[in-house]
Every structure is written in C-alpha cells, then in structure tokens.
C-alpha cells in the first residue's frame, strides 16, 4: 500500500515538472508609475546616451523590435552581457494603463552562460550577477532619466 502511494506521489511530482507554461518567464521586472510611451522614450534615451550600451539587429528581430522586446548589449571592462527585455502587457494595456513595466526575459554573459527563467544554463549566482549588472548599468540610469524609483517585480 505504502509503495503504491509512493508511486502515485512520484508520478504526480514528475507530472508537475512537465506541466509548465514553457515560456521565457521573468528573471526580474521593473515597474514605473508612468505610461508605456514615456517609459519607451526614456529607455531609448538611456541607450543612446550611454556608449557602453548598444543594440544589434534593430527592428529585424522578433526579440528586438523596440516596441515589444528590446535586445541590448552592455559592455564594461570584463562585462559583455546581452539582455532581452520586454514591456509588460499588450497594446491595450499600453494605451490605458497608468503604469508600465519592463522585465528581463533572457540574459547571457560573454561565454553564452545564461538563459531565461524557463530554461537556462546558469547557476543562481551567475543569474544574480547578470541581474546586478543590468541594474547597475541600465536600470539605475533609467531611474535617473525618469527621476523616479522603480518597484521590483520578481514574478512572485
């Protein structure tokens, strides 16, 4: 009897591992009490002002269309990380909502270590390092550009 219960629990546990959204998820999000349009303008300004931040394949890539997703590279001394982030919500939310948010979908270092919340080849420490660098070189400047403090969204 105990063995049967163990087997059922094991099957349920295995199933739970296989049930999932299968999507990129959110490594970390940053919410502001402004419209998406204003946030978008500030994001572009920060990228243009900062020589250490740049975008490749602009407008050609699904993950770098500039409207929904943006992919940037941050270079500073030993750091050469790539981040793909997304504006939360859809056209309807962007038009009507009084707040907006960007969240990191994918992050990779120069060795290709990284990934998304859904799937990645990095340790928790490496993930933290990637997020810390993003905050130090991008989010802090975005806060300054907007003269606002963000609210963190960890997806919990």
């Amino acid at each position: 009897m105990k063995f049967k219960i163990f087997i059922i629990i094991a099957i349920l546990f295995y199933s739970c591992n296989m049930i999932g959204a299968g999507t990129h998820g959110l490594l970390k999000g940053y919410r502001y009490s402004i419209s998406k349009k204003e946030l978008e303008t500030a994001v572009i300004k920060v990228i243009e002002k900062n020589p250490n931040i740049y975008r490749d394949t602009i407008d050609k890539d699904y993950y770098n269309d500039g409207i929904t997703y943006l992919t940037i590279k941050i270079k500073n001394k030993d750091i050469e990380n790539e981040y793909t982030f997304r504006y939360y919500g859809d056209q309807e939310d962007w038009k009507n909502s009084t707040y907006s948010e960007i969240f990191i979908c994918y992050a990779y270092d120069k060795y290709g270590k990284g990934g998304s919340e859904g799937k990645g080849n990095f340790t928790k420490e490496q993930e933290k390092g990637l997020i810390d660098a993003f905050e130090m070189f991008f989010i802090d400047q975005l806060d300054r550009e907007l003269n606002l403090n963000h609210i963190q969204d960890t997806g919990q």
Partner: peptide, 10 residues
Amino acid sequence: DKMGITGFKG
C-alpha cells in the same frame, strides 16, 4: 510570454 509567467509555479 506577455505577462512574464513561466513554469508550474506560475
């Protein structure tokens, strides 16, 4: 994807 939700927990 839009909402940044993933995994069984999400």
